Amino acid sequence: MSLMSRRARVTQAAIRQAIRAAQQTGAGLVRILPDGSICIDPSPPAEERLGRGELASKWDDVNPPRRRFGERLAERANTNSDDPLALAFARWERGEIKMDQLPPGRYPNGMRVYADGEWEAIVRAKPLRKREIASLKAYFDADGAPNFCSGGIDTNERLEIRGLTEKSSIPQKDRMPFYRITAAGKDEWRRQAAAQIEA
């Protein structure tokens, strides 16, 4: 004769009953074991123990209370209520204004919005960067080649702002345009190449 043990089936109804029973007794923890037995811990919930000055265990705050949607945005807006840029950014986060309606300036989160022509003036005032020089060389070498593009979007925009390249085709939607070198770009590349030879 052999003894057989069988695992009890735990149904959703049994789980609901256990939760209701725990809520009615004010229990802090309900466990359902694999054999089907239900263990109810009669100790009060963590917040009541904390209220009496006792320490909570590391398992008491497994699911901390979640903030409702919009509370985080309201907190950000209230922290810098004097700063007009912070207020404008909070309005943008709530969807009240569009990105192009944000006033120019440096925002508290590190984002910067440039005024019309400001970024272009900053680019022209700085010397060429390594990537711009490499792309300018590629455009110089590929002079006359149709449908040519070298470098990333930012590099090409900088070269175009400086007047060293120009768009050679109208780009399709969601496509990067092709560029060609200008006369000023050829002169600038010759100057850069001469400076590299002297160094």
Rank of each mutant, 00 (worst) to 15 (best):
D141Y: 00
W92S: 00
A184W: 04
W189R: 07
E54K: 10
L102E: 12
R76K: 10
G26W: 07
A90S: 14
E96P: 05
I197V: 15
R158D: 14
W92D: 00
R49T: 08
Y139P: 03
L55P: 08
P127K: 01
E75V: 05
R180H: 01
N109S: 08
R68Q: 05
A21F: 12
T182C: 05
R106V: 06
P104H: 10
C39L: 11
N109A: 02
F69S: 09
L128H: 06
D83S: 13
R49Y: 09
D187Q: 15
G185C: 08
Y179Q: 06
A74K: 07
F69D: 08
A77Q: 12
W189I: 04
D116H: 12
R52D: 12
A21T: 15
R175D: 10
P34E: 07
R124S: 02
Y179C: 09
S2M: 10
F69C: 02
P127V: 01
R158M: 15
S135Y: 04
Y114R: 08
G110Y: 06
V113E: 00
P103A: 07
A142Y: 01
G144A: 11
E166V: 07
E54L: 12
P104V: 11
R180W: 00
G185T: 06
G110C: 09
D143G: 06
A90W: 02
V10Q: 07
S169Q: 12
G70L: 11
V113G: 00
K126Q: 15
L33E: 14
K167M: 15
R129L: 14
S168R: 04
P108A: 00
P45W: 01
A193F: 10
R7N: 09
N78C: 05
R162M: 02
I170R: 09
G105E: 03
W119S: 05
V10G: 04
Y139Q: 04
D154T: 12
S168T: 11
R190F: 07
P64Q: 04
I19D: 05
C39Y: 08
I133K: 13
S168A: 13
A183H: 11
S37E: 11
N109E: 08
Y139G: 05
D174K: 09
M4R: 15
F140Y: 15
E160S: 11
P171G: 03
A46M: 12
D41S: 13
R67V: 14
A88Q: 01
G151C: 13
R52Q: 14
A21W: 09
K130L: 13
C39R: 07
Q24V: 02
P84V: 05
T79C: 00
K173L: 09
R180Y: 00
A22Q: 07
I97C: 00
I40H: 03
I38L: 04
S168V: 07
D35V: 07
N156W: 02
Y179L: 05
F148G: 08
K167G: 06
Q196E: 15
Q196K: 15
I19M: 12
L55H: 10
I197Y: 12
G51V: 02
K126F: 08
D61I: 10
N156L: 10
A8N: 09
D83V: 08
E96H: 04
D60C: 12
L50E: 13
E118Y: 01
G110F: 07
G163V: 04
G117Q: 01
R67A: 14
E132P: 02
N147G: 11
N80A: 14
